[in-house]
């Protein structure tokens, strides 16, 4: 795939807080092609949501600040757009879905009013045409009796239904990119299965590209084409789903994979957790940020930032073990 929909280059985002500067994102680069699904995984606090907020230009400034880097959508530099232009990008080209749909739905308006209002701000059509579109959207996201449901308020829906409505809103103007931040984390597994199915179906029908942020490796295995593994504000490994699951090279990626039990696994085998906790981002350590938790840490890891090593045209990792002088532990 040579075509690029979204391209992020060396993005760095910090927040100034009472305790000092939190370096939430520290030099992130990745691209998304049209129609593909890219997952971002990593422990909480590693900068996944801030990365997503940066793409949509929704980082609260202050306290946040984009320190450097660029984000291009269809070749256009998003930083160069006016706020008004950016709002139109958010409605028309990028759709967003969050973990808690209630934070993005208006509790005082019926779902129908919210949908038609949204459609009317982006499209020059009549009210009745917009209403017809709202019905189509609810159909698309698998909500039965859409005419009836449009008259209801958000709180009258279950969590899973609300997430479907959020997805309908995000798809309103046929965006080319959907950003979903932990879209199933608050849902039960049977409902999660419905929503993941819905994502796949919608992608097939509309060809939308998806960036999905999740901590659930099972969800990732089900839906993603490629995975970015983030740690302490950086992408430490990136590759196709199969490269990451079957040939993980970064000790952090390996740790995430061995921490989760498998349904078909052996109960007598203890899980292999990652020791310790992530470093605080006020003063990220010199060298590799994972050193203090890494089983394979060497002297050099403490002192110098590891370089990026490419293992295939899409698989790379940032780890000193890739250096030809290092002994290979796995």
């Amino acid at each position: 795939m040579s075509e690029t929909l979204l391209e992020i280059n060396d993005l760095a985002v910090s927040f100034s807080t009472q305790g000092g500067e939190v370096q939430a994102v520290r030099g992130v680069s990745f691209a998304v092609a049209p129609g593909e699904t890219v997952a971002i995984v990593g422990e909480s606090g590693c900068g996944k949501s801030v990365t997503a907020q940066s793409i949509m230009r929704l980082v609260p400034e202050p306290p946040g600040r984009i320190k450097h880097g660029s984000i291009h959508l269809n070749g256009k530099d998003l930083a160069a757009l006016s706020d008004k232009q950016m709002r139109s990008v958010r409605g028309k080209q990028i759709g967003m879905i969050f973990q808690d749909p209630m934070t993005s739905l208006n509790p005082t308006l019926t779902v129908g009013d919210q949908l038609t209002e949204g459609i009317l701000t982006h499209e020059n059509i009549s009210k009745s045409e917009a209403e017809k579109k709202a019905v189509e959207l609810l159909n698309l996201v698998g909500i039965a009796n859409p005419q009836e449901r449009l008259k209801l308020y958000p709180h009258q829906f279950s969590g899973g239904m609300r997430q479907r409505i959020m997805i309908a809103m995000a798809l309103m103007c046929k965006p080319s990119l959907l950003i979903a931040d932990e879209p199933t984390t608050a849902l039960d597994v049977t409902i999660q299965a419905q929503i993941i199915d819905l994502f796949k179906e919608i992608q097939e029908k509309t060809g939308v590209a998806i960036i999905i942020i999740t901590h659930d490796l099972g969800v990732v295995a089900q839906i993603a084409d490629r995975i970015n593994v983030m740690y302490a504000g950086e992408i430490v490994e990136s590759g196709t789903v199969k490269e990451i699951f079957y040939k993980p090279q970064h000790p952090y990626t390996r740790g995430l994979l061995t921490s989760v039990p498998r349904l078909d696994g052996d109960r007598s085998q203890p899980l292999i957790p990652i020791a310790g906790t992530p470093p605080d981002l006020f003063s990220p350590p010199e060298g590799c940020a994972f050193t203090s938790r890494c089983k394979y840490a060497m002297e050099v890891c403490r002192a110098y930032d590891p370089a990026v090593t490419h293992l295939s045209d899409r698989h790379f990792t940032k780890c000193w073990l890739q250096d030809e002088r290092a002994e290979k532990p796995f």
Partner: peptide, 20 residues
């Protein structure tokens, strides 16, 4: 059981699930 996503893309590719 069939709703639980497994951390294994090969299995996930061919898995039949019961979606309630």
């Amino acid at each position: 059981l069939s709703s639980i996503p497994l951390p294994d893309p090969d299995i996930e590719e061919s898995r039949e699930r019961i979606i309630l």
